Simulated scan of single mutants.
Amino acid sequence: MTRAAGRVGAALAQPDELDAWLRLVHRTGVGRGTLRRLLAALGSPAAVASADDAALRVLVGERQAEALRQPPDDHAERVAATGAWLAGHPQRRVLTLADADYPPALLQTADPPLLLYLQGRSELLAAAGIAIVGSRKPTPQGLDNAHRLATELSRAGWTIVSGLATGIDGAAHLGGLQAIGSTIAVVGTGLDQVYPRAHRALAQRIAEEGLMLSEFALGMPPLQAHFPQRNRIIAGLTRGTLVVEAALRSGSLITARQAAEAGREVFAIPGSIHSAQARGCHALLREGAKLVETVDDILEELGTQPRQATLDLTIAHAAVLPSVAPTDDDEVLRALGHDPATLDALMARCGWSASALNVRLMELELDGLVARLPGGLFQRRQGA
């Protein structure tokens, strides 16, 4: 896949440039493949918009040429909303297929997005990434595996990529945020939306310490058809995809197969033969995925060391991020108090096992009530 001619500025600062890209991309009746062919042939969205009818009919046919002549629904409103969104935060960008910063790994896939909305550390797009995906209803062991492996990979400098869903995705993002690799959340909505709502605090933390990414226009709700499209980006951004837990009919298997089709590695964690959540992983293993028991199984397969990221996790982050409503009803929060504490200290106070306490602490992290700090410490967030 080659880039369209020309280079687009980092935030599409020119109103006419933004207008041209949004007019081209967010329309009905013309697919992404057709739009990429037009850009390759004509060079830019502005050139597509000014092309005469005869040229368009030769390139895409009568029906799609007519569709290209019609502006997308609510186009003026979308341009204004996108401009206001970009102006609202210095780490927001609209990245296009023509931009020199477009991620090379994604460019090499069969269906790279024409346009990406970003908020956060856009330099993570150039980092070596590993996708970690799995069930929205995982077992406690699955949650622990996802968080532990994501943390270890992030410590080794790998950026963790996932889809912000409940369950395995959330645990993977949290693990990525613990170390230098950080995390990228690829979502199936506009970046002004958060889905699921329970991950509002997590999404804000990722926007500050990692990167939020979407190809969908601002205001776009979570439609079912969007998630397979999102999955191809998760697979395409990364060197490999790890499936932690998945049923046989799972979106995670779609992501894994899209990774294989893009020539990327596929990894899977085996489970009990009696567990429905292990059957998807077992199916991938039968198809040739690499079995994973420890992080070394992944690192040995990928071989080279990634570019080192620079993420400074400090206690200050925990103090400024928003939290959900305070509560004193939770046993673990009561045991934690308001000073940082180790897992061993909490085990002594609660009388819980390490595995049960780790799962509950992860749930409290996802709710925005607890922060996991460097040095194996946990701290109750301000207001919790």
Rank of each mutant, 00 (worst) to 15 (best):
G129F: 00
R148N: 12
T310I: 09
T304M: 09
A235K: 05
D111G: 10
G303L: 04
A179Q: 12
I273K: 04
A165S: 14
E208F: 15
L174E: 10
N145T: 14
A100Q: 14
V133T: 13
A4F: 06
T159A: 11
P306H: 08
D74G: 07
Q229Y: 05
A309N: 14
L248P: 01
T109R: 14
V94D: 02
D74P: 08
G219I: 01
G351M: 02
A76Q: 15
V133D: 14
T304L: 12
T189I: 09
G236T: 10
L369R: 08
A207M: 01
E215W: 00
L333Q: 03
R197I: 10
R197V: 13
A335S: 04
P340E: 11
H317W: 13
R307K: 10
E208S: 14
E77V: 01
V244M: 11
E293F: 08
S275G: 02
R93T: 11
I180P: 13
L95R: 05
T314C: 11
G157V: 06
P222M: 06
E77Q: 07
D101V: 07
Q178I: 01
A256L: 06
R148Y: 02
P104M: 11
I315G: 10
L364Y: 08
G142N: 14
A384P: 00
L377I: 00
A40T: 13
T159D: 06
A185I: 03
G271D: 03
I315P: 09
L361C: 09
D329C: 08
A246Y: 11
R93E: 14
A259T: 07
R78C: 00
A179I: 05
S162A: 04
A128Y: 09
Q193G: 13
A100H: 12
Q64G: 00
I269H: 10
F216V: 03
Q305K: 14
L153Q: 10
G368D: 03
R334C: 12
S122R: 04
G176L: 07
S182M: 02
L24W: 04
Q277M: 12
R286T: 12
P196Y: 05
D169N: 14
A126D: 15
R232W: 06
T294L: 01
G236S: 10
L343Q: 11
E66F: 10
G31P: 07
P113T: 04
S135T: 12
Q91M: 05
A47V: 05
E215H: 00
E261H: 03
G271A: 00
L242G: 10
